[in-house]
Amino acid sequence: MNAAVIVFPGSNCDRDVATALEQAMGKKPIMAWHGNADLPQVDLVVLPGGFSYGDYLRCGAMAAQSPVMREVVARAKSGTPVLGICNGFQVLTETGLLPGALMRNASLKFVCRDVTLRVEAANTKFTSHYAPGSLPRMTVAHGDGNYFADAATLDELEQSGRVAFRYVDDAGQATPEANPNGSARSIAGILNAAGNVLGMMPHPERHADPLLGGTDGKALFSSLVQALS
């Protein structure tokens, strides 16, 4: 399996996700510079976290216009799996590959803490190593993770099984206290209609090592390796 991590100016989780991918794949992913439109043929494209272009416009808005993204969009439309984490999720909504938008956190503050997720869709390339309804712990670290879409879009996401993860409490209940950013229906991650694009605010790559407080993120990478090898 080959993977590419797109490096935008201002990406800052590129190394972290590359480390987690290397652990899972047994080899290093390609680090693809944003200015090169000629993306190598790979089985997986990852848009990492960070502050692409400083996020001085809407988060992810400028990255969505960068040369490499035209190619990423084309590959996604032809079925290549694309994973967007945090800023990567924001870029995916800005390109229109995923519906909705990520607004400023309801608290109006950046939030960095561990959250509990509930796996809502375990039948995907990204999540098959999670049991349905299981409760992995991961870290969120963002200022703009408040997922918003109109009611019809949210209903459609739910009905078509495209809500991948939800923020929940230790008992698995989606309460306001367990929702770190005010996301609609506690949504932490969603899939596109074809199921090959996943955007999520939590960072699985920061929970892929027992020394760092947990390994619940590893199943996401191992799912991909199994699906794409």
């Binding site: 800052n12 972290d16 503050k109 950046f110 939030v111 960095c112 870290t139 670290a141 920061r206 760092l212």
Partner: peptide, 9 residues
């Protein structure tokens, strides 16, 4: 909690 204290993994 307003500081990203886990980036760089």
């Amino acid at each position: 909690q307003q500081y990203d204290h886990t980036v760089m993994a």
